[in-house]
């Protein structure tokens, strides 16, 4: 690989940082190559590693700095993008990629099943509630029991949703933790 193609790949993969930051990064690495001299191009490339991975690492680092500086509110979409960029920054080998993939599948399955259970509970709560209201006229005691039961299911629904949201937050924190360890080593 030549210095030019290395820098080109690096630049092409910096599309997730603001232009001024990309310029900063490029200036640093262009200067780095120039200081090392034409004779050391291969050495520098070996030292810096795969240009795409370098771009992902410096992007993840930018994201961490941006999050830590606490720049205002973020939309869910921005948060998701940031999390994804951090994941890319952590993944440095096929094995880590595989582990991340498996973890992602498990977490996704958990979240989906939590929400599915929550939906089922809502249905059960609705049915029990109406059954309770109708039974109220014929048998007050049993009717109240059913209405009470429906309230229990509403509580369980809320619990399931909170648990699912909790898992998402936990995963976010874990990714942040690993990204920080990796980037700031």
């Amino acid at each position: 690989m030549t210095k030019e193609s290395y820098l080109k790949i690096l630049r092409a993969n910096l599309n997730n940082v603001p232009p001024y930051e990309a310029d900063n990064i490029m200036q640093y690495y262009i200067e780095y190559f120039e200081e090392a001299g034409p004779a050391n191009v291969d050495k520098v490339i070996a030292e810096l590693g795969n240009p795409k991975q370098l771009a992902q690492r410096v992007t993840a680092d930018y994201v961490i700095r941006d999050i830590e500086s606490g720049n205002g509110n973020r939309t869910v979409k921005q948060k998701a993008t940031n999390t994804w960029l951090l994941v890319l920054g952590i993944i440095s080998s096929p094995i880590i990629a595989l582990v991340a993939f498996v973890v992602a599948i498990v977490v996704l399955a958990l979240i989906v099943s939590f929400f599915a259970v929550a939906v089922a509970f809502v249905v059960v709560a609705a049915v029990t509630f109406f059954a309770g209201v109708f039974t109220l006229f014929s048998s007050t005691g049993f009717g109240l029991l059913l209405i009470g039961l429906s309230l229990v299911f509403i509580a369980l629904t809320i619990f399931m949703v909170l648990a699912a949201v909790g898992i998402i937050k936990l995963v976010e924190l874990l990714i942040m933790f690993f990204a920080k360890r990796k980037i700031k080593k």
Binding site: N24, Y32, G49, L54, D61, R65, K185
Partner: peptide
């Protein structure tokens, strides 16, 4: 190796 000082310098700078 396999990393560079850029992230560290940038963070210290900010």
């Amino acid at each position: 190796s396999e990393s560079s000082l850029y992230p560290i310098l940038r963070r210290l700078q900010s």
